[in-house]
Design a protein around this nucleic acid. Sequence first.
DNA 1: ACCTATCTCCTTACGGCGTACGGAGTTCGT
DNA 2: ACGAACTCCGTACGCCGTAAGGAGATAGGT
Lengths: 248, 248
Amino acid sequence: MTIDFTGGGDPRRSIELLWGLRSAVSRPGPKPRFTVAEVAAAAIAIADAEGLGALSMRKVAERLGVSPMSLYTYVPGKAELIDLMFDTVLASGEVDGDDWRERLERVARDNFALYLRHPWLLQVATARPPLGPHVVAKYDRDLRAIDGIGLTDIEMDLVVQLVADYVHGAARTAVAATLVAQRTGLTDEQWWERAAPVLAEVLDPSATPTASRVGSAAGAEYNAASDPARAFEFGLARLLDGVAALLK
Amino acid sequence: MTIDFTGGGDPRRSIELLWGLRSAVSRPGPKPRFTVAEVAAAAIAIADAEGLGALSMRKVAERLGVSPMSLYTYVPGKAELIDLMFDTVLASGEVDGDDWRERLERVARDNFALYLRHPWLLQVATARPPLGPHVVAKYDRDLRAIDGIGLTDIEMDLVVQLVADYVHGAARTAVAATLVAQRTGLTDEQWWERAAPVLAEVLDPSATPTASRVGSAAGAEYNAASDPARAFEFGLARLLDGVAALLK
DNA sequence: ACCTATCTCCTTACGGCGTACGGAGTTCGT
DNA sequence: ACGAACTCCGTACGCCGTAAGGAGATAGGT
């Protein structure tokens, strides 16, 4: 229910975890049954299927066939496990293209697709992100999409942030539309059919004429309350136009 | 930990709740000790202070001086209570201004400020929003900011969505920065001082030269990992430029 | 003035959660 | 062969939302 914050624990332990340093050295005691990556993968599978709210240490343990408390030998706690999941799914390929607009568009689309694949990412806080290998690599990759096109370093940082913020917002809208449909078992149309008559008893459309006009035009056009994929395309185009205006 | 979805319960009951219809008729039984609005206000106070994750029926009841289960005579469940909180805080004044850009900017800034005032709003799903009076009024108000400037109805809907999505993303970044600082008790600078030496042991800066260059330039400029207010101003300006390009 | 339906408010209880604590058994370097 | 360090587990605590059902209060109909 909350945004999950990155573990406030020992930074050294976190970095070791993210970069996989523990597994290198040989240690006394029984061999671990799993790798840290396997634990993370199990957690990711659960979060993908059931959401971050349904992710529990008990479920991860069950999926791996061990007791809940065993997990604490792999990760210090749930917060660090989420850090690990975050860095893991951020792994991805290079972005290339002839001009900055093509590359930046690609960055945005990749991010959007990533959120659709792993909706729980939307709820992981990105202030002071876990400094894992893929997080660092991704920041570099995003910046390179707009390097050398005439922006200052600060502007580059701000443009990457702008794209990230917008994509997050648009993806959240898209994911919410999908999830709410699947959780309620109702399409937008079915939902509206039920809500509209009740709303009509209480709402005077002439008090909000613009909302009424645009709302029904949009409903007719989309055959739904909204069309998140189209909204993303539209928004991305406007946003890139805005960045282009900064360049010349 | 999860995004909270609007109550999938009886739509008629929800609409009654949001529009305050129950209180009108006279009923047998003891007089309720509170109004529904008072219950919502108590819940909002808790969520503002401690976050949505810390909002529990038990805490709301305690603040009102009743037993937890008494709340269920006012609201069907926690989901509907959150719907009510959502509609309540969306109440606000009119937006006026000479040109569309001024008005749309105002809409964006008002939204941004609203998220800062009530950070838990960031976690409330807005697909199929609770159809309360303030939700409807807000949609109308937002649309009126760009009515009659040459956009089609569909474009108007998409522009409002674009602004809403971006503001959500930017506000989330800003709120996360504030919250993470207050929860860890560390400034960005203090955090970086601790993380940097550990990261240096493991990261080769020459592998990610763009990130290193821009990252240190940004750190020097902001005196922090980021400057969310500045990022919002920058992003909003680009976004409005993008909308302007659509108009001519 | 009484009856009864309906209301408010309560106590109790269930199954979920993260994880602190401490114990049992295993394997390494020496 | 030994001790330190490890893996794994059982138990327990205090949180959560809310189902179930009971006690007492109050309105309208008679």
